[in-house]
Every structure is written in structure tokens, then in C-alpha cells.
Amino acid sequence: MKEAYLPETLQEALQVRKDQKVLPIAGGTDLMIQHRREGGVAPAFEYPLLFLHKLKELKKIEQHTDQIIIGAGVLLSQLIEEQPVPELLRKTVRQMAAVTTRNVATIGGNICNASPAGDTLPFLYATEAVVLLQSLEGSRHLLIQDFITGPGKTALKEDELLVEIRIPYKEFKVAYYRKVGTRKALALSKISFAGLANFENGYLSDLRMAVGAVAPTVVRSREAEKQLIGLTVEEMKGKMQFVREIYSELIKPIDDARSTAGYRKAVSLDLLEWFVREEVCRGG
């Protein structure tokens, strides 16, 4: 078996995926930390690495009439610098890590790492992004929430690679992102929140609220959203307690050193309410 694979094309990479167990590596900013050993020793990986950085097929950023397609290998820095990237995604990425990390880290890596604190995820849940998975056998599409199955777990099969992310193209009157963390950029977030809303003739016509880092996977409640859709700004205010209760059930922070579970829950519910009261209502 080889020590590692450095394919030049997606086809070659998929052949390697089919032939043996390997560990795909894009920017390595999660993998290198997860496999770090003390004292300047090379990190140890369970399988040979499959380097993805040379694959041009993973680098596209394209605007189509109904969607924006972003390759899995697009750097976080490119999401800030290049067009066409949805403004809310740009805003999200600006608050992730530091430039030096964003210069190697990829959006595909953030998704496949499937950390509850992965900062691009609330945006992707809110926009109902679809991931394209490819193997030599063919390709399949999954909604982001079906792709991410648990903390650190995805539906990716051993012969597949994540190739691109498709973000349905839609204009939102209200597009909001907020990250609450100990240090704005460097710390993995304690709470990462994306909210989108639209109004028609004074009534709320669309609402998406996704909260990250407060449960094993991103929390988004259609039930709560439905409670508010169709209402006027004034009517929405009266429903807030109900919305808090629904999210309160769903928010189950994994308690870790970064902050206590109770604090996270309280802050995320306040953040939700703030979003509806201030951001959404102002938009209407």
C-alpha cells in the first residue's frame, strides 16, 4: 500500500477511493489538529491520505439561474474574495478562524468534518443547500441535513467524495448571521446562528432559523417557523413564547469546556427572540 495519494483529477481520486481505504484531506486544518502528536512528530493517520488539493473539479464557483454551485475544495478565503458567493455566507466566513487558516481550509472540509460547531452549517441548513456526492458508480444528491447524521458523522460512503455544494438561489429581505464565541474569530463558536426571512404584503412569507453548536447537529425547527409564517409583525410578537418553547426542546448543548450548557441554551433562545423581534420585524 502507498503512503499517500496525490491524484491530479477527480476520476483518479475516485478510483483510489474505490480501490482502498484512504482518508481524504483537503486543507487538513481539522485533520492535522485531530491527529496531532506532541513534540514535532508527524501526525499519525489510520489510513493513507488522499490529497484533494490538486483537483480542479472541486474548485468551481458558479452562478446558475436557480442556484449557486460551490466546489468542495473552494478555500474559505476564496468565499470572501470571489464571486458569486451569497452575501450571508461571506459574512459567516469572515467570522471563521484567521486568514492563515482560511487560506487552506475548505468549505467541503467544514461540512465533512460535521462538527456541531462547524460555522458554515447554519447557513447551509437555512438555505437548504444540497451536497453532490460522487463515486465511480455515479452521483447522488442529499440535503445538508440528511448528509450530516451526527457529531462528526456523515452519510458519505467509503468510495465517495463530496464534490460540490448547491445553494438554491433566492433573495431574502432579512439575512442575518451571528456568532457568539469567546474570541471572535479563532475560537470554535459557542453559538452560530443563521436566520433568513421574507415578507409579502406585510405578512411573513418565508422564515428559516438555524442554530449551530447547541446540539449534536444544527437545530432548525420547521414547526416553529410555520407558527410565524403568514403572520404580521404584530402577530408574531405574541407567538414568541411558543417559538422559544419549541427550540428549548431541541437545544441540547453538548456540555464542554467552552461554556456551560445552561448558558448556551439561554443565550441561543435570546438570540432567536432577538432575531425575530429586531431583525425580522424591522424587515417587515
Partner: peptide, 10 residues
């Protein structure tokens, strides 16, 4: 970029 988290293959 930070060279402490970049593997040589990259």
C-alpha cells in the same frame, strides 16, 4: 499559511 498544520504532501 501556518506551516505547523500543513502536511508535506500538500
Amino acid at each position: 499559511v501556518t506551516s505547523c498544520i500543513i502536511p508535506l504532501g500538500m
